[in-house]
């Protein structure tokens, strides 16, 4: 039994596709059955369209990759006109979270206000942690700024409000507490780490933006730790994300306290990765004494 009720909605699987790795869903529709998953988190949506960064935007690293896409997206109006209709018309079982990004509190609030009356999605994942744009980590690394942001967005919507935490802080737990105090409904842990790859032949950074975000299997233990820490410090549901490529990876997050997980970079290696993780989790849950995913959440014996 891997179905759960979270954020007031049914998730038929604990596995979602992570923001930035599944476009707006439609791109993967030919390759995987999105409806077999718990859902997906869209590429970030900002108030105005963003062109994104100059190439190279991606580079491989041992155990992962670095990306600096630069939040390329069609903007709020473009998302509503060209992306949301497909999600609304084609997904009925899979839950959709819209990832929201902004340069200011007003930006974030305007995106949420502009989307809130639309159909086709469950709630928001607030991106306070993208390291690829100037100022992109400001909210995620400053407790007072994060508090103000969450409070303001909370005032704009009654939909599920999930904050995607950055790991680039001394203690993720402090930021989890801030989100809970300001009325967030959940947390995603974690976004990428800042990283750089040097092209030794040209002596230049390989990535056009110079630095980017590190994702992939290399960051799995950091994500599991952040999930555990967030659950120690708050009672908010946590979506575990970072480095998952197998059902056992996902189970680490679940035992550490995540009720849902997201598969990201692994989808580039195998578009079916999330479906395989979901099927594998079903088998693991069936074999566990609890027989229910909800009873496995936070079942870590860390005494």
């Amino acid at each position: 039994m891997i179905e759960q009720r979270v954020f007031g909605a049914w998730f038929r699987s604990p596995v979602l596709l992570a923001s930035g790795t599944c476009g707006y869903g439609q791109e993967y529709a030919d390759l995987i059955d999105l409806e077999s998953l718990g859902g997906l988190v869209t590429k970030a949506v900002s108030l105005e369209p963003r062109p994104g960064n100059a190439p190279h935007r991606v580079a491989e690293t041992a155990g992962g990759m670095v990306n600096a896409i630069g939040l390329e997206n069609p903007g709020l109006a473009g998302f509503i006109a060209t992306k949301l209709p497909w999600l609304r018309d084609n997904l009925s079982k899979a839950q959709v979270l819209v990832n929201v990004v902004g340069r200011s509190v007003d930006d974030y609030a305007a995106v949420v206000r502009g989307l809130d009356g639309e159909d086709g999605f469950l709630g928001y994942e607030i991106n306070v942690s993208c390291p690829n744009v100037k100022g992109g980590t400001m909210f995620g690394t400053n407790p007072a700024a994060l508090a103000e942001l969450v409070r303001r967005i909370r005032g704009e919507t009654d939909r599920p409000l999930i904050v995607k935490l950055t790991p680039n802080v001394a203690d993720v737990g402090e930021f989890a507490m801030v989100c809970e105090e300001e009325g967030a409904d959940g947390l995603s842990a974690i976004n990428t780490f800042p990283g750089m790859v040097v092209d030794t032949a040209s002596r230049r950074p390989l990535i056009g933006n110079r630095s980017g975000g590190v994702s992939g299997p290399a960051i799995l233990p950091m994500g599991v730790h952040a999930t555990w820490r967030a659950r120690q410090c708050s009672s908010l549901p946590v979506i575990g994300v970072g480095g998952i490529r197998s059902a056992l990876d996902a189970m680490q997050y679940i035992m550490a306290g995540a009720c849902l997980v997201q598969v990201g970079t692994a989808s580039f290696v195998d578009p079916m990765a999330a479906v395989r993780v979901s099927e594998g989790l079903a088998a693991l849950v069936e074999a566990a004494p609890e027989r229910s995913i909800g009873d496995l959440v936070g079942s870590l014996d860390d005494a």
């Binding site: 930035g20 476009g23 791109e27 590429k43 994104g52 190279h56 935007r57 991606v58 580039f268």
Partner: peptide, 23 residues
């Protein structure tokens, strides 16, 4: 040829500059 992540349009990694200035 540009560095690619997914090959199917999801990662937005492999952009080139169009004549209109867009990626």
């Amino acid at each position: 040829e540009e560095h690619m992540g997914c090959g199917v349009g999801t990662c937005q990694g492999c952009v080139v500059r169009g004549a209109g200035g867009d990626w």
